[in-house]
Simulated assay, not measured.
Amino acid sequence: MPITQPHHAPGRLPRVSRALGLLLGFAADRVLGDPRRFHPVAGFGQAASRLESRWYADSRAAGTAYTVALVGTTAAAGVVVERLTRNRPIVHTLVTAAATWTALGARSLDREAEVMAGLLEEKDIPAARDRLNHLCARDATSLEADELARATVESVAENTSDACVAPLLWGGVLGVPGLLAYRAANTLDAMVGYKSAKYLNFGWASARLDDVLNLLPARVCALLTGLAAGRPREAIAVWQRDASKHPSPNAGPVEAAFAGALELTLGGMNSYGSYQEDRGTLGDGPTPAVADVRRTAALARRVDVVAAGVAAILAVAGRKGTRWG
Protein backbone atom coordinates (compact mmCIF):
# COMPACT_ATOMS: atom_id res chain seq x y z
CA MET A 1 0.00 0.00 0.00
CA PRO A 2 1.51 3.35 -0.96
CA ILE A 3 2.26 5.75 1.86
CA THR A 4 0.37 9.00 1.45
CA GLN A 5 1.95 12.26 2.54
CA PRO A 6 0.05 14.63 4.82
CA HIS A 7 -1.76 17.23 2.78
CA HIS A 8 -2.29 20.83 3.83
CA ALA A 9 -5.14 22.80 2.34
CA PRO A 10 -3.94 25.49 -0.07
CA GLY A 11 -3.32 28.73 1.75
CA ARG A 12 -3.52 27.20 5.22
CA LEU A 13 0.14 27.68 6.15
CA PRO A 14 0.31 31.29 4.87
CA ARG A 15 -2.83 32.09 6.87
CA VAL A 16 -1.39 30.68 10.10
CA SER A 17 2.02 32.26 9.63
CA ARG A 18 0.37 35.58 8.84
CA ALA A 19 -1.60 35.45 12.09
CA LEU A 20 1.48 34.49 14.09
CA GLY A 21 3.49 37.25 12.42
CA LEU A 22 0.86 39.86 13.23
CA LEU A 23 0.82 38.85 16.89
CA LEU A 24 4.61 38.72 17.09
CA GLY A 25 4.94 42.13 15.45
CA PHE A 26 2.30 43.57 17.78
CA ALA A 27 4.21 42.21 20.77
CA ALA A 28 7.45 43.71 19.43
CA ASP A 29 5.78 47.11 19.15
CA ARG A 30 4.45 46.88 22.70
CA VAL A 31 7.84 45.90 24.13
CA LEU A 32 10.23 47.87 21.92
CA GLY A 33 8.25 50.69 20.37
CA ASP A 34 9.63 52.44 17.32
CA PRO A 35 13.40 52.22 16.71
CA ARG A 36 15.05 55.55 17.51
CA ARG A 37 17.32 55.34 14.48
CA PHE A 38 16.92 53.94 10.97
CA HIS A 39 13.14 53.57 11.18
CA PRO A 40 11.80 52.38 7.80
CA VAL A 41 8.89 54.82 7.99
CA ALA A 42 11.33 57.70 8.52
CA GLY A 43 13.28 56.49 5.50
CA PHE A 44 10.07 56.39 3.47
CA GLY A 45 9.28 59.92 4.61
CA GLN A 46 12.68 61.15 3.50
CA ALA A 47 12.22 59.54 0.08
CA ALA A 48 8.75 61.08 -0.16
CA SER A 49 10.14 64.53 0.69
CA ARG A 50 12.80 64.26 -2.01
CA LEU A 51 10.21 63.18 -4.57
CA GLU A 52 7.90 66.01 -3.51
CA SER A 53 10.66 68.57 -4.11
CA ARG A 54 10.89 67.33 -7.72
CA TRP A 55 7.24 66.64 -8.50
CA TYR A 56 5.41 69.34 -6.56
CA ALA A 57 2.90 71.39 -8.47
CA ASP A 58 -0.25 73.08 -7.25
CA SER A 59 -2.51 70.54 -8.94
CA ARG A 60 -4.43 67.39 -8.10
CA ALA A 61 -2.90 65.58 -11.07
CA ALA A 62 0.64 66.04 -9.75
CA GLY A 63 -0.40 65.00 -6.26
CA THR A 64 -2.20 61.93 -7.57
CA ALA A 65 0.87 60.80 -9.52
CA TYR A 66 2.99 61.36 -6.42
CA THR A 67 0.66 59.28 -4.24
CA VAL A 68 0.27 56.45 -6.76
CA ALA A 69 4.02 56.21 -7.30
CA LEU A 70 4.91 56.01 -3.61
CA VAL A 71 2.04 53.84 -2.35
CA GLY A 72 2.09 51.65 -5.45
CA THR A 73 5.81 50.99 -5.17
CA THR A 74 5.47 50.13 -1.49
CA ALA A 75 2.56 47.78 -2.13
CA ALA A 76 4.46 46.09 -4.98
CA ALA A 77 7.43 45.51 -2.69
CA GLY A 78 5.07 43.87 -0.18
CA VAL A 79 3.65 41.59 -2.89
CA VAL A 80 7.16 40.48 -3.85
CA VAL A 81 7.95 39.67 -0.23
CA GLU A 82 4.74 37.66 0.12
CA ARG A 83 5.45 35.67 -3.05
CA LEU A 84 9.02 34.88 -2.05
CA THR A 85 8.08 33.65 1.43
CA ARG A 86 4.60 32.13 1.00
CA ASN A 87 5.92 28.52 1.06
CA ARG A 88 8.37 29.11 3.90
CA PRO A 89 6.21 29.44 7.03
CA ILE A 90 8.93 30.47 9.48
CA VAL A 91 10.35 33.11 7.15
CA HIS A 92 6.84 34.30 6.30
CA THR A 93 6.04 34.66 9.99
CA LEU A 94 9.19 36.69 10.58
CA VAL A 95 8.74 39.05 7.63
CA THR A 96 5.10 39.58 8.58
CA ALA A 97 6.22 40.36 12.13
CA ALA A 98 8.82 42.82 10.84
CA ALA A 99 6.26 44.53 8.60
CA THR A 100 3.77 44.69 11.47
CA TRP A 101 6.34 46.22 13.80
CA THR A 102 7.21 48.75 11.10
CA ALA A 103 3.59 49.67 10.42
CA LEU A 104 2.45 50.03 14.05
CA GLY A 105 2.94 53.09 16.23
CA ALA A 106 0.84 52.12 19.24
CA ARG A 107 3.65 52.03 21.78
CA SER A 108 5.02 55.39 20.65
CA LEU A 109 1.52 56.89 20.90
CA ASP A 110 1.19 55.47 24.41
CA ARG A 111 4.54 56.97 25.42
CA GLU A 112 3.58 60.39 24.12
CA ALA A 113 0.32 60.27 26.08
CA GLU A 114 2.24 59.36 29.24
CA VAL A 115 4.72 62.21 28.69
CA MET A 116 1.88 64.69 28.20
CA ALA A 117 0.11 63.37 31.31
CA GLY A 118 3.28 63.84 33.36
CA LEU A 119 3.88 67.38 32.12
CA LEU A 120 0.28 68.40 32.77
CA GLU A 121 0.29 66.82 36.23
CA GLU A 122 3.46 68.78 37.01
CA LYS A 123 1.74 71.94 35.67
CA ASP A 124 4.58 72.48 33.23
CA ILE A 125 2.35 74.14 30.64
CA PRO A 126 5.14 75.60 28.44
CA ALA A 127 6.73 72.16 28.07
CA ALA A 128 3.34 70.54 27.41
CA ARG A 129 2.64 73.09 24.67
CA ASP A 130 5.96 72.30 23.05
CA ARG A 131 5.37 68.55 23.35
CA LEU A 132 1.90 68.56 21.81
CA ASN A 133 3.35 68.73 18.30
CA HIS A 134 4.51 65.13 18.79
CA LEU A 135 0.83 64.17 18.74
CA CYS A 136 -0.89 66.61 16.41
CA ALA A 137 -0.47 69.76 14.34
CA ARG A 138 -2.58 72.07 16.49
CA ASP A 139 -1.35 75.54 17.40
CA ALA A 140 -0.72 75.16 21.13
CA THR A 141 0.58 78.68 21.74
CA SER A 142 -2.32 79.79 23.91
CA LEU A 143 -3.68 76.46 25.13
CA GLU A 144 -4.01 75.94 28.88
CA ALA A 145 -4.04 72.67 30.83
CA ASP A 146 -7.59 71.51 30.06
CA GLU A 147 -7.32 72.39 26.37
CA LEU A 148 -4.00 70.56 26.18
CA ALA A 149 -5.68 67.59 27.87
CA ARG A 150 -8.51 67.70 25.31
CA ALA A 151 -6.05 67.85 22.43
CA THR A 152 -4.18 64.86 23.83
CA VAL A 153 -7.32 62.79 24.43
CA GLU A 154 -8.61 63.48 20.92
CA SER A 155 -5.23 62.75 19.32
CA VAL A 156 -4.84 59.48 21.22
CA ALA A 157 -8.37 58.44 20.20
CA GLU A 158 -7.88 59.25 16.51
CA ASN A 159 -4.41 57.74 16.34
CA THR A 160 -5.46 54.54 18.07
CA SER A 161 -7.20 53.77 14.80
CA ASP A 162 -4.49 55.14 12.50
CA ALA A 163 -1.46 53.79 14.36
CA CYS A 164 -2.75 50.39 15.43
CA VAL A 165 -6.24 49.21 14.52
CA ALA A 166 -6.17 50.07 10.80
CA PRO A 167 -2.73 48.61 9.98
CA LEU A 168 -3.54 45.44 11.93
CA LEU A 169 -6.81 44.94 10.07
CA TRP A 170 -5.19 45.53 6.67
CA GLY A 171 -2.45 43.13 7.69
CA GLY A 172 -5.01 40.53 8.68
CA VAL A 173 -6.75 40.77 5.30
CA LEU A 174 -3.84 41.40 2.91
CA GLY A 175 -0.67 40.55 4.82
CA VAL A 176 2.60 42.37 4.20
CA PRO A 177 1.32 44.41 1.19
CA GLY A 178 -1.63 45.61 3.26
CA LEU A 179 0.57 46.61 6.18
CA LEU A 180 3.13 48.48 4.09
CA ALA A 181 0.71 50.16 1.69
CA TYR A 182 -1.48 51.37 4.54
CA ARG A 183 1.47 52.85 6.41
CA ALA A 184 2.73 54.52 3.22
CA ALA A 185 -0.66 56.10 2.53
CA ASN A 186 -1.11 57.22 6.13
CA THR A 187 2.38 58.73 6.19
CA LEU A 188 1.72 60.71 3.01
CA ASP A 189 -1.54 61.99 4.48
CA ALA A 190 0.39 63.23 7.53
CA MET A 191 2.95 64.90 5.26
CA VAL A 192 0.84 66.56 2.56
CA GLY A 193 -2.81 65.94 3.44
CA TYR A 194 -3.37 69.34 5.03
CA LYS A 195 -5.97 71.93 3.99
CA SER A 196 -3.28 74.59 3.67
CA ALA A 197 -2.75 76.75 0.60
CA LYS A 198 0.29 74.71 -0.42
CA TYR A 199 -1.25 71.25 -0.11
CA LEU A 200 -4.96 71.78 -0.78
CA ASN A 201 -4.54 70.44 -4.33
CA PHE A 202 -1.27 68.52 -4.21
CA GLY A 203 -2.27 66.65 -1.06
CA TRP A 204 -5.83 65.92 -2.19
CA ALA A 205 -5.13 62.39 -3.46
CA SER A 206 -3.14 61.41 -0.37
CA ALA A 207 -5.90 62.67 1.92
CA ARG A 208 -8.67 60.94 -0.04
CA LEU A 209 -6.76 57.64 -0.21
CA ASP A 210 -6.21 57.75 3.55
CA ASP A 211 -9.93 58.41 4.04
CA VAL A 212 -10.84 55.38 1.91
CA LEU A 213 -8.36 53.05 3.61
CA ASN A 214 -9.61 54.08 7.06
CA LEU A 215 -13.32 53.99 6.27
CA LEU A 216 -13.97 50.50 7.67
CA PRO A 217 -11.10 50.29 10.22
CA ALA A 218 -12.24 53.50 11.94
CA ARG A 219 -15.69 52.04 12.48
CA VAL A 220 -14.24 48.77 13.73
CA CYS A 221 -12.10 50.82 16.11
CA ALA A 222 -15.19 52.66 17.33
CA LEU A 223 -16.92 49.36 18.04
CA LEU A 224 -13.86 47.88 19.77
CA THR A 225 -13.58 51.01 21.90
CA GLY A 226 -17.01 50.46 23.38
CA LEU A 227 -16.30 46.76 23.95
CA ALA A 228 -12.89 47.40 25.53
CA ALA A 229 -14.39 49.98 27.88
CA GLY A 230 -17.32 47.75 28.83
CA ARG A 231 -19.68 50.48 27.57
CA PRO A 232 -20.64 49.39 24.05
CA ARG A 233 -24.14 50.89 24.11
CA GLU A 234 -22.94 54.28 25.29
CA ALA A 235 -20.06 54.41 22.81
CA ILE A 236 -22.26 53.36 19.88
CA ALA A 237 -25.01 55.81 20.87
CA VAL A 238 -22.63 58.79 20.87
CA TRP A 239 -20.98 57.54 17.69
CA GLN A 240 -24.31 57.32 15.85
CA ARG A 241 -25.55 60.66 17.16
CA ASP A 242 -22.46 62.88 17.01
CA ALA A 243 -19.87 61.48 14.59
CA SER A 244 -21.30 63.40 11.63
CA LYS A 245 -20.54 66.70 13.39
CA HIS A 246 -16.82 66.04 12.96
CA PRO A 247 -15.29 67.19 9.65
CA SER A 248 -13.35 63.94 9.26
CA PRO A 249 -15.41 60.93 8.12
CA ASN A 250 -13.13 58.58 10.08
CA ALA A 251 -11.90 60.53 13.09
CA GLY A 252 -15.52 61.38 13.90
CA PRO A 253 -16.70 57.83 14.74
CA VAL A 254 -13.53 57.04 16.72
CA GLU A 255 -13.50 60.23 18.77
CA ALA A 256 -17.24 59.99 19.38
CA ALA A 257 -16.87 56.39 20.57
CA PHE A 258 -14.06 57.40 22.94
CA ALA A 259 -16.25 60.25 24.23
CA GLY A 260 -19.08 57.84 24.95
CA ALA A 261 -16.80 55.20 26.46
CA LEU A 262 -15.02 57.71 28.73
CA GLU A 263 -18.17 59.75 29.55
CA LEU A 264 -16.55 62.93 28.22
CA THR A 265 -17.38 65.71 25.77
CA LEU A 266 -14.81 66.11 23.03
CA GLY A 267 -14.58 68.48 20.09
CA GLY A 268 -14.70 72.24 19.66
CA MET A 269 -12.78 74.83 17.69
CA ASN A 270 -9.15 73.96 16.92
CA SER A 271 -6.48 76.23 15.51
CA TYR A 272 -3.91 74.88 13.07
CA GLY A 273 -2.01 78.11 12.56
CA SER A 274 -3.08 79.03 9.04
CA TYR A 275 -6.69 77.91 9.52
CA GLN A 276 -9.26 76.97 12.15
CA GLU A 277 -11.54 73.96 12.19
CA ASP A 278 -14.77 73.33 14.08
CA ARG A 279 -14.70 69.71 15.29
CA GLY A 280 -18.29 69.77 16.53
CA THR A 281 -19.33 68.58 19.99
CA LEU A 282 -19.10 64.86 20.71
CA GLY A 283 -20.49 63.27 23.88
CA ASP A 284 -22.42 64.34 26.96
CA GLY A 285 -20.00 64.45 29.90
CA PRO A 286 -17.53 67.05 31.12
CA THR A 287 -14.71 68.26 28.91
CA PRO A 288 -11.40 66.43 29.47
CA ALA A 289 -9.28 67.26 32.50
CA VAL A 290 -5.67 66.34 33.13
CA ALA A 291 -6.62 63.06 34.83
CA ASP A 292 -8.45 61.91 31.71
CA VAL A 293 -5.23 61.67 29.68
CA ARG A 294 -4.09 58.52 31.49
CA ARG A 295 -7.63 57.08 31.35
CA THR A 296 -7.63 57.54 27.60
CA ALA A 297 -4.21 55.95 27.20
CA ALA A 298 -5.31 52.94 29.26
CA LEU A 299 -8.43 52.49 27.11
CA ALA A 300 -6.36 52.79 23.93
CA ARG A 301 -4.07 49.99 25.14
CA ARG A 302 -7.06 47.71 25.67
CA VAL A 303 -8.40 48.54 22.20
CA ASP A 304 -5.00 47.70 20.71
CA VAL A 305 -4.95 44.25 22.30
CA VAL A 306 -8.47 43.42 21.10
CA ALA A 307 -7.60 44.67 17.60
CA ALA A 308 -4.56 42.38 17.47
CA GLY A 309 -6.80 39.43 18.27
CA VAL A 310 -9.31 40.43 15.60
CA ALA A 311 -6.54 40.79 13.01
CA ALA A 312 -5.19 37.32 13.82
CA ILE A 313 -8.68 35.85 13.46
CA LEU A 314 -9.11 37.59 10.09
CA ALA A 315 -5.79 36.16 8.92
CA VAL A 316 -6.69 32.59 9.87
CA ALA A 317 -10.30 32.81 8.71
CA GLY A 318 -9.50 34.00 5.19
CA ARG A 319 -11.14 31.70 2.63
CA LYS A 320 -7.95 30.69 0.87
CA GLY A 321 -5.40 33.17 2.12
CA THR A 322 -3.97 35.88 -0.09
CA ARG A 323 -1.65 34.03 -2.47
CA TRP A 324 -0.36 37.01 -4.50
CA GLY A 325 0.08 34.83 -7.57
Score class of each variant (00 low, 15 high):
residue 145 A to C: 05
residue 205 A to F: 02
residue 140 A to F: 03
residue 199 Y to C: 03
residue 161 S to V: 13
residue 258 F to H: 11
residue 56 Y to H: 15
residue 21 G to I: 04
residue 242 D to R: 06
residue 282 L to S: 11
residue 46 Q to E: 13
residue 180 L to M: 13
residue 109 L to K: 07
residue 13 L to V: 15
residue 14 P to E: 02
residue 316 V to M: 10
residue 24 L to M: 09
residue 127 A to T: 11
residue 297 A to H: 01
residue 23 L to P: 10
residue 278 D to C: 00
residue 76 A to P: 14
residue 56 Y to G: 07
residue 213 L to Y: 13
residue 292 D to I: 11
residue 292 D to M: 06
residue 277 E to N: 06
residue 77 A to F: 05
residue 52 E to V: 03
residue 117 A to K: 02
residue 276 Q to M: 09
residue 204 W to Y: 15
residue 179 L to R: 08
residue 275 Y to N: 06
residue 324 W to R: 11
residue 26 F to M: 11
residue 276 Q to E: 15
residue 324 W to A: 06
residue 263 E to F: 11
residue 74 T to K: 05
residue 194 Y to N: 09
residue 63 G to W: 05
residue 87 N to T: 15
residue 186 N to C: 01
residue 126 P to Q: 06
residue 204 W to M: 05
residue 90 I to N: 00
residue 29 D to F: 05
residue 134 H to F: 05
residue 304 D to P: 05
residue 307 A to E: 02
residue 161 S to G: 08
residue 117 A to Q: 01
residue 67 T to Y: 01
residue 152 T to K: 05
residue 118 G to C: 03
residue 259 A to E: 05
residue 172 G to S: 12
residue 1 M to L: 10
residue 236 I to Q: 07
residue 235 A to S: 14
residue 20 L to R: 08
residue 218 A to N: 12
residue 281 T to G: 04
residue 95 V to W: 02
residue 38 F to P: 08
residue 150 R to T: 15
residue 270 N to F: 08
residue 23 L to D: 03
residue 208 R to C: 02
residue 48 A to P: 12
residue 83 R to K: 11
residue 258 F to N: 14
residue 60 R to P: 09
residue 49 S to H: 09
residue 42 A to Q: 14
residue 178 G to H: 04
residue 212 V to W: 09
residue 290 V to C: 07
residue 311 A to S: 06
residue 61 A to V: 15
residue 8 H to N: 14
residue 34 D to K: 06
residue 129 R to I: 09
residue 78 G to W: 00
residue 108 S to P: 08
residue 35 P to M: 00
residue 171 G to M: 05
residue 302 R to F: 03
residue 32 L to T: 06
residue 301 R to I: 08
residue 285 G to A: 03
residue 226 G to C: 00
residue 299 L to D: 05
residue 142 S to C: 03
residue 303 V to D: 04
residue 234 E to W: 02
residue 86 R to E: 04
residue 157 A to N: 13
residue 81 V to L: 03
residue 8 H to R: 14
residue 280 G to L: 07
residue 124 D to S: 08
residue 301 R to G: 14
residue 298 A to Y: 04
residue 12 R to V: 08
residue 177 P to H: 00
residue 314 L to R: 10
residue 137 A to I: 10
residue 294 R to I: 09
residue 135 L to N: 10
residue 93 T to M: 10
residue 50 R to A: 12
residue 72 G to K: 04
residue 301 R to M: 05
residue 241 R to I: 13
residue 267 G to C: 12
residue 209 L to W: 06
residue 131 R to Y: 15
residue 177 P to S: 00
residue 81 V to T: 10
residue 36 R to T: 15
residue 221 C to S: 12
residue 300 A to R: 12
residue 10 P to A: 06
residue 220 V to L: 00
residue 176 V to F: 00
residue 124 D to Q: 11
